[in-house]
Design a protein around this nucleic acid. Sequence first.
DNA 1: AACACCGGTTCAAATAATGAACCGAATTGG
DNA 2: CCAATTCGGTTCATTATTTGAACCGGTGTT
Lengths: 248, 248
Amino acid sequence: MSTVGKAVSLLELFTLHEPEIGLSDLARRAGLDKATARRLLMALAAHRLIEQEPKSRRYRLGAGLSRLARIRDAHFPLVRLAAPVLRELSLETGETVHLSEFSAGALLTLHVELSAKANRVNVDVGQVLPLHGTASGIAFLAASRLEAVSAYLEKPRQAFTAFTMTRQDDLVKAIALAASRGYSRSAQGYEEGVHSIGAAILGADGQPIGALAVASPVSRVDDAVAASQGEAAVRAATMISARLTGEA
Amino acid sequence: MSTVGKAVSLLELFTLHEPEIGLSDLARRAGLDKATARRLLMALAAHRLIEQEPKSRRYRLGAGLSRLARIRDAHFPLVRLAAPVLRELSLETGETVHLSEFSAGALLTLHVELSAKANRVNVDVGQVLPLHGTASGIAFLAASRLEAVSAYLEKPRQAFTAFTMTRQDDLVKAIALAASRGYSRSAQGYEEGVHSIGAAILGADGQPIGALAVASPVSRVDDAVAASQGEAAVRAATMISARLTGEA
DNA sequence: AACACCGGTTCAAATAATGAACCGAATTGG
DNA sequence: CCAATTCGGTTCATTATTTGAACCGGTGTT
């Protein structure tokens, strides 16, 4: 791997649940020598992509990332453009709606509009969703190029609940169904008791860049409700895609 | 410079005003060979820190940055904790208030609370403020370690208006005054017609991490108003510092 | 038609990255 | 309480990666 790739791998070791990591730990997990890891961290720190807590000497992500992310968000305003549409979809369906963007083999939750109901699904911004096992992921795959789907299906998949689809032929069927009707449906594939309807959001080149999903308690959804949520989700996703590519 | 440093330099070429850049341009501005720039861009793109517009083949910042920035923001919630305090300060003073974080030798504007008045100062999120010539910067320097200030004062400074302080002894005086009373004052040092009061925000180790500022049209500020804005700004900055370090 | 510049590629030469061993200081645990 | 780990950090000969001049083919411009 390139030196740059190794440096970025170090950045990717930090998560919501583990935002500060020590040198030896970082080196071990990245599969790098301690000296190498430190040199890379210093290079990143010089540009404020990494900071070091002076007391504990542990490392954390730096302010430069916030700066770069803001520049990107201003130019590629997925969240800004999608937020009102998501809000409307949430009001229309009465359920929690969340938006995610594809990044590094998974979907990253960027925005959430919570249902007003007491019994609702809660989703965290920043949560990383696997492509299999979530409605958003299946919708994303269904809109992806065939070669990308094939490549993804070759790798092993983790089961999150007893309902998670991990077998390749099951996934192929689910993806085909989602592709044919425009939205995906997933019951308890990622978390027990959660039913989701997903729809892909497309970029200017027609390739999917992310997805949105309507998430409900399973008890509240039957086939009719799912169908109406699906149509609403597709409308919303289409609207967001259009706004992104500069249309109306 | 390290390979990693060069790669990050490429990222830093993108700005709010120029969010997409072509290969030759990037190489030229970074002082790199075209082939080198491309290899670095590919390494960054593999981790989604860079994306390439398929049509124009120009490069832009990638979604991975948004992801990393969100992880950092969740753990180091300067904006989240500061926002309500800034809002209150804006209401109290009736003026525009903005928050900035130190990054790579300058202050990066992270959040703005606009005045409700028709004649107000407008500030953009993402704007980069120089340490000299802005009230925020002087306040930041006044709270910094002496060696950091000295190092900064050695480098040449740009004048933005006819009022920008660029002479070293003027700056030393302004910094000393700000240090003694807790807030800084700057009139038209960065933009004509704008008067600002700045106060530094400190991290857990007592070192400054950023600053806030109250920005008003010069016509609305006399010494008495400046003094009351200064006291309010110091109170707000202290409150934010305390929240950041875990206190009430 | 000639020119200039674009994004992208190649490969021998040059340079930067690497990691085992080592240091002193905290922690840990028997 | 002392010995054994483990920590963050450093060194320097070895090694592997990065580098860039030259070269594509393509796309406007003149």
